[in-house]
């Protein structure tokens, strides 16, 4: 028996109209997208820029209002929910953004940023809030004095860990990660990826992991959906997608990934230039 999905997305669609009103040009950013995310699972959403993967992530949280479809979270449809109820559901679904530089308010200390996230969702006495902020800082690997740091005093990787802490502090079950490591250097990228993995194991979190980087998505995801021009062209377990891609676009994407060793790169080039007899 398969477990009950945490999130069920069905026929989600969102179109954008041309800049001028009455413009006939309609861009289908998200076109009839359906997928499930199971508890404790990482679901990877890959595709190239403009394929609608980020719009999908935002539409789930209604940061962009989708045109049609349904998004049911623990059996309740987020898209039909009144604003009040949506507010408290946001405790369960949080988001981590791509750019760690613009995703933290430069005028606020780290402790205040985390405290604010808590204040938005819970009515707690200050003492309890501060305690929780310190606990979460410790969990993402910061010493106590980071409470008083400003974002500009931290590196990109450290900021992204604060971004994760801000999502974690309200106790979510699902975190939507929109390109969380694409702005980071490789050695820092691995810090954040390992941390996300550890947190998942420890807390039973689910992730919707949105990225253009197939190697990263492969490393962290249990299942993957490939998006092209607003549609999901293929989805399935990670190993199957990578070892036996069905859709030509998926194959095209996989072929474009740079080789991990120069010898492999040369072999592939000679294979491409010598015609198959």
């Amino acid at each position: 028996m398969t477990p009950q999905p945490l999130l069920e997305v069905r026929n989600l669609s969102k179109s954008f109209h041309g800049r001028r009103s009455g413009d006939a040009k309609v861009m289908k950013a998200v076109d009839d997208v359906s997928f499930d995310i199971l508890p404790g699972e990482t679901f990877g959403l890959v595709g190239e820029s403009g394929c609608g993967k980020s719009t999908t992530g935002r539409a789930l949280l209604r940061l962009i209002e989708p045109d049609s479809g349904s998004v049911s979270f623990q059996g309740q449809d987020l898209l039909k929910m009144p604003r009040k109820q949506l507010h408290s559901t946001r405790r369960q679904i949080q988001m981590v953004f791509q750019d760690p530089y613009s995703s933290l308010n430069p005028h606020r200390r780290v402790g205040v940023i985390l405290d604010e996230a808590l204040k938005i969702q819970y009515r707690l006495p200050r003492k309890q809030r501060t305690e929780r902020v310190h606990r979460i800082l410790d969990r993402v690997g910061f010493a106590e004095d980071y409470y008083y740091r400003f974002p500009h005093e931290m590196s990109g990787g450290q900021r992204q860990r604060i971004g994760v802490a801000r999502a974690l502090i309200v106790g979510p079950q699902l975190i939507i990660c929109d390109e969380p490591v694409s702005a980071l250097d490789v050695s820092i990228q691995s810090q954040v990826l390992n941390m996300l993995h550890d947190l998942q194991v420890e807390l039973g979190l689910s992730y919707l992991f949105i990225s253009h980087d197939l190697s990263v998505v492969r490393h962290i995801s249990h299942r993957i959906a490939v998006m092209q021009k607003g549609r999901i062209v293929e989805q399935g377990p990670t190993d199957e997608i990578f070892s036996n891609p069905q859709h030509p676009y998926t194959r095209q994407l996989l072929d474009a990934i740079p080789a991990s060793h120069p010898r492999l790169a040369r072999e592939r080039r000679t294979a491409l230039t010598t015609p198959v007899s």
Partner: peptide
């Protein structure tokens, strides 16, 4: 070693 490789051990 810090790059996730497309054919690496996940």
């Amino acid at each position: 070693a810090s790059i996730p490789e497309i054919d690496g051990d996940r």
